[in-house]
Design a binder for these strands. Structure first.
Lengths: 235, 235
DNA sequence: TAGTGGTCTAGACCACCTC
DNA sequence: AGGTGGTCTAGACCACTAG
């Protein structure tokens, strides 16, 4: 670990997991912790702030830091960005692809707006069904400007996480995403395989940004809610 | 303003809004800003960290802070906790209630688990349709343990935000919520008024917590997605 | 009143970016 | 090589909590 405060945060988190500090119980004071770890109080405060952001602990001025009850529920939220691949793997399932299609076309008005495109730009569309343990769970459509990956993208693309592919082959990292959450309506065109059993579906429209806030790609995901659950932490 | 760093964060945010720093442009360095505001560099760093958390700015080590493009899109997300009342008012609509019912019953298994109840606890159920400009937009069911508000709650309750009512009459503040996003299925019982026009609906299941992480109440909300849009910021 | 967390300072050293 | 942000320190004072 490079950062002392992140290291200390991890240690304290582990100790909470182990039950060394019980739910609702008070942690040692900042000054005690800074003695224990041999660091300054400010460093300890950074560790504790990180624990607060993780939802493990809460602080009360003049009193102390207390282990948050239900902190465990806060771990599997979609507040942190993750690809569908990661989502499926986190559920201990094996991820796969079906009916993968890649083609090039002109962007529509919404895509131009959300991806900051010029009128002469063209986009790649990656259209596929993602499976978990061979069962279709997500119908996913990614819209990726050619200006970002170049004309030879279809040869370079390989099944699995698009985020990972962009990072490994192009050095492009997704730092943030803005997701719109939608109900599925009759207008939404869905592949037969996903529609067949008439499962409950959620629609996510996501714009993925790099660290500078420039849009990278757009995705439409229709997720089977009977197979995957979604939580949001609101603070 | 009490805190210097929050004050400076607000000033810088306003200056970005005013176009004093353009999108993608670099901000003055930390050391320049600390001179300008007459504070230490650490204080400036806190202001900048807050601006990053707000999605207005991003930092690059060794280079500087840059105004984030699309920062404006990040403002209306559900990452921050807000009541339905606030949600409707933010859309410049007038909030109202319809078919309000309050009754007392035993909690079911899910409620016992999510609200940390004992087997002998009872809960109040507040069942109502929330309207925006007189049109029904949300069917909402709140589950509130009697142990939190006492037996006379039905007399004390008044239409509008339950969060506000709890804060004003009981001094109970919601600090955080964990929300599950669900698709609506045939099993969900919905009032005729909301179902009538067959609008696209989203289901939110939320547990509301106080600052100590103790659950306060549970809510089931069926939101008309043709009237209200929902965004989540993922980092 | 004593102890706690919240804010702020002035300085130091490092890793990284840019030229 | 010089400038930038990232980390860390040792100390100070304040606001709040609790006995």
């Amino acid at each position: 670990m490079v950062n002392r405060y992140a290291e200390i945060c991890a240690i304290l988190g582990k100790e909470i997991d182990q039950g060394l500090f019980l739910e609702g119980e008070r942690l040692p004071t900042e000054r005690e912790l800074s003695d224990r770890f041999g660091v300054s109080r400010e460093t300890i405060r950074r560790s504790l702030k990180q624990l607060i952001e993780l939802g493990r602990v809460h602080g009360i001025q003049g009193s102390g830091y207390y282990v948050r009850r239900h902190g465990r529920h806060m771990k599997s939220t979609i507040n942190r960005f993750s690809s569908i691949t990661e989502l499926i793997r986190n559920a201990n399932l094996t991820e796969g692809d079906l009916e993968v299609q890649i083609f090039k076309r002109k962007p529509d008005a919404q895509e131009i707006q959300l991806l900051d495109l010029g009128s002469q730009d063209v986009v790649f569309v990656i259209d596929r069904i993602r499976t978990a343990d061979r069962e279709p769970v997500v119908y996913s459509k990614n819209i990726l400007p050619q200006s970002i990956v170049g004309v030879d993208f279809p040869e370079k693309f390989e099944p699995g996480s698009l985020t990972k592919c962009l990072s490994q082959k192009y050095g492009i990292t997704v730092a943030e995403a803005l997701m719109e959450l939608c109900a599925v309506t009759d207008e939404d065109m869905l592949p037969y395989r996903l529609k067949a059993s008439n499962p409950p579906l959620l629609k996510f429209i996501q714009v993925h940004y790099d660290a500078k806030g420039a849009p990278i790609f757009l995705s439409y995901d229709f997720m089977r809610n009977d197979k995957i659950r979604f939580f949001v932490r609101r603070t």
